[in-house]
Design a protein around this nucleic acid. Structure first.
Length: 424
RNA sequence: GUGGGAGUAGCUCAAAGGUAGAGCCCUGGACUGUGGCUCCAGUUGUUGCGGGUUCGAGCCCCGUCUUCCACCCCA
């Protein structure tokens, strides 16, 4: 038996209603904020990520699926979406000449990590990116999109963590002092943190080891280093969030794994994901478009993990999409009438299924039941003689015989009634 | 990449180194034109794969694959 590569999974139909519920909700929320869907490629030149995310980041240095094409150019399966959207935006005059552009996307991402709960090698993200203004309203807006998605999906008990990591200027001062502070305590650090000290000082604040955690208390805090512009931006954002009913928790230790962030960073976190806690994360990246060769364009966005949200709501009941009509026949002439009926129903937008091999009504009713069919339609010898069809409402068991030509109308009416009742 | 646990029927799980089992599911029957409930019967299988130890391995050993958990990191 062949198997999947590790961390690369199939999603079978029994999970699809849940999946679509998440995706449809996200898409609909984006629509209400006037974000436009963009489809970006899965493969990019490696340079897009190396330059965009930073050579020294973990993702680029050890987690990418990279290979050469036949011409010897290095290609990489995208590990995230933002770099691609920025690449696309920067290179497309139809959009980058506009005062503002608003995009969202869905799609699979690839990272060569060791799989565990909530962490796959191929996973799907839903992401939102805004280009064209440094106004804190847009930081608020993308956060509001994710907050609305979370609420509508029913992600319970989540928290929004918020921080500002400043602009390159004020952050530079901060990192220098942070580095000095930790350097003076280097013998108290764990091995990982000594490495972080050389590679990515900000990540020292993430360590969960006891010794390093203790050092955190007296470490310099980013807030005190932010320049006036960054401070103003951050407090405006906080006012907007508070003023519009989005609660958040300030976390001065919240840093992101990618180099491109400036000012705002945020994470939506929950305790339901095992060792992982974030199901969406993002921030502002005011310098990335320029880095990709575009004109300087402030931008802000986030990405959410669809599989992680699937895990969070795995015990919630999601309405199951079921076939409208299961057609039951008794072979021969009744089968060909049954097939005709299926065709008529389908052309009228009513979903219909049929099993040509089925023998016996009992057998077919069982299948209808298993398919969760709303109606069973019987076409047997008796119905053929009368040119009629018997409709059986499966949940109530009610049954009526109607003229063949009235079948579509009768079904349509009953299906609408059911929908109204469900909604009411 | 590091460290630990696990892998037996479609699923959830049993089986002191000595003949592979239960529940659910599935198939059929009781009920030949009526599903869900009940009862009865039946198939559940290369014990992940490959080696080794042993008279004998689902069980012990080695390797490998997959999976889970944690670390690293991240959605």
């Amino acid at each position: 038996m062949l198997s999947n590569p590790p961390g690369i999974e199939d999603i079978f139909p029994d999970q699809i209603d849940r999946w679509n519920f998440i995706v449809d909700t996200a898409r609909d929320v984006c629509r209400t904020f006037n974000y436009k869907e963009i489809i970006i490629p899965v493969l990019e030149y490696t340079e897009v990520f190396a330059r965009g995310l930073g050579d020294e980041t973990d993702i680029v240095s050890k987690e990418m699926f990279t290979f050469e094409d036949r011409g010897g150019r290095s290609l990489t399966l995208r590990p995230e979406g933002t770099a691609s959207v920025v690449r696309a935006y920067a290179g497309n005059g139809d959009y980058n000449r506009l005062a503002a552009s608003k995009f969202f996307y869905f799609g699979p991402m690839f990272r060569a990590e060791r799989p565990q709960k909530g962490r796959l090698r191929q996973f799907n993200q839903f992401g939102v990116e805004f280009f064209g203004s440094s106004h804190p309203y847009y930081d608020y807006e993308v956060i509001a999109v994710m907050d609305a998605v979370s609420k509508r999906i029913g992600v319970g008990d989540y928290e929004l963590l918020l921080n500002s990591i400043g602009c390159p200027e004020c952050r530079g001062n901060y990192i220098r002092d942070l580095e000095n502070y930790y350097r003076s305590h280097v013998d108290e650090l764990c091995d990982d943190c000594r490495r972080r000290l050389e590679k990515n000082t900000l990540r020292l604040l993430d360590c969960k080891q006891e010794g390093c955690n203790a050092l955190k208390k007296n470490a310099p805090v980013i807030n005190e280093y932010l320049c006036e512009t960054c401070v103003t931006h951050h407090s405006s954002l906080k006012e907007l969030l508070t003023g519009h009913g989005i609660s958040f928790k300030e976390d001065p230790h919240l840093v992101r794994g990618l180099d491109y962030y400036t000012k705002t960073t945020f994470e939506f976190v929950t305790t339901k994901l095992g060792g992982q806690n974030a199901f969406a994360a993002g921030g502002r990246y005011d310098n990335l478009v320029e880095l990709f060769g575009g004109k300087p364009t402030p931008a802000v966005g986030f990405a959410a993990g669809i599989e992680r949200i699937m895990l969070i709501i795995q015990n919630e009941r999601i309405p199951r999409r079921a076939v409208d009509a299961y057609i039951i026949h008794s072979g021969n002439a009744t089968l060909s009438r049954a097939i005709e009926l299926a065709e008529i129903l389908r052309k009228n937008g009513i979903s219909a299924d049929i099993d040509p091999n089925a023998k016996g009504f009992k057998n077919q009713f069982k299948k209808a039941d298993r398919e969760n069919a709303k109606f069973s339609l019987i076409i047997g010898e008796e119905e053929i003689e009368k040119n009629s069809v018997t409709l059986k409402h499966m949940s109530s068991g009610d049954q009526q015989q109607v003229e063949m030509r009235d079948c579509v109308e009768a079904l349509r009416k009953s299906l609408n009634n059911d929908t109204d009742n469900e909604q009411g």
